[in-house]
Nucleic acid binder design. Structure first.
Lengths: 199, 199
DNA sequence: TTAGCTTCCGAACGATCGGTTGCTATATTC
DNA sequence: GAATATAGCAACCGATCGTTCGGAAGCTAA
């Protein structure tokens, strides 16, 4: 039926698949993302979908990559160009809160959902998720360390502890927003961040 | 093949199913819990498994109930008989940390996993999970309120905010333990709790 | 024009999903 | 001891899972 598309159109089809796949995965989970469901949503055949990836696992990895791109675009690139250290750390966290508040993905934070879904298994998908999570936490740790070094945070600050607490604030935000539809949660998150990142 | 069992044995079979089901669900998720897998694990037929419940949803609800029982047994009943208020609140949180540290379930906190899995869907299973979560948070809120009233916490304490932060500490603990196998996480959790629940 | 490459489809594969149906064998009840 | 109730099994149902295969259709290079 469908003939060969130009190179540009082909890339576009692949993007459509991954984009819709990310939406589904953020709601139903990476395992709940089904070739048949994806094909039906996009009005194409299962073979046409899987042909771009070869296997479901490759598709899952492409979705994880896309989630990382979305995170870069919707969080990291929106961090204002402020000096490194405490000010930048605050803006990174604010961008994070705003991202969840904006409901960019229908299922909330993709990495939160994917992490709890795959935390007990092995395999490349779990490794990819863990890698993405590690990169962001590393960025937080770097800024926190700079803030300590610049005297913007107490000299005896435990940077690992601080990152732990920041992650907790974000996990709680996702939890209260998604499970309980709690609209005051972003305010709570910001208040916790203010206390954690006070000068 | 298998004949009818005595009433006691029947109850025991049902318990075996739900117990193993909870273990599987804590690792693979409530949807990843399949009748066939459960039957194979227990050395019985699918019909023998589903016969006790009638449908998979009923089985899932039974597993959620069992998870609540485990939580009561492993957390709430281990809270020492200390006076209400701040002291009791501290012991409740400590019991919670110890529960995750003890690795009672192979997949970590069942309700954390179940909540993120079902937070985007409707139906009785989601309602049950939300209900369990609400009960525990209510208990926390009550003790926090008593602590404020007794002057053990600052008078201007925002109890909702405190519960938000406590939940964040626990979600982070589960996250770092399960995804990253971080053995220092329980220490981090206790340190955060000490800061949140300082007199 | 022609040959090759690629995208996508329709159809089918074996496996597994949740669930149903008869049946056997036993515990319980009378 | 006879009648009844029921736990669990083997077999099967239609649906869906991920995946494979052959071919149709159109772009591109020769």
């Amino acid at each position: 039926m469908s003939p060969r598309k130009s190179v540009a159109e082909t890339r576009l089809t692949r993007r459509r698949i991954v984009d819709r796949g990310l939406e589904i995965a953020s709601m139903e989970g990476l395992e709940g993302l089904t070739i048949g469901r994806l094909a039906a949503d996009l009005g194409m055949s299962k073979a046409g979908v899987i042909g771009h990836f070869g296997s479901k696992e490759t598709l899952q990895l492409a979705v994880v990559d896309e989630a990382a791109d979305v995170f870069v675009r919707e969080v990291q690139e929106r961090v204002p160009d402020v000096p490194v250290g405490l000010v930048r750390l605050r803006e990174m966290c604010e961008a994070w809160v705003a991202y969840l508040e904006r409901h960019v993905l229908p299922g909330g934070c993709f990495f939160t959902a994917a992490a709890t879904e795959f935390d007990d298994r092995g395999g490349p998908v779990r490794d990819a998720i863990r890698g993405m999570s590690a990169v962001w936490q590393r960025d937080l740790r770097i800024q926190a360390r700079m803030a300590v070094h610049a005297g913007e945070l107490p000299a005896d600050t435990d940077v690992g502890q601080l990152v732990y607490d920041l992650v907790g604030v974000m996990l709680a935000l996702n939890h209260f927003l998604q499970l309980e539809g709690d609209s005051v949660a972003p305010g709570r998150a910001r208040r916790s961040l203010r206390r954690l990142l006070a000068e």
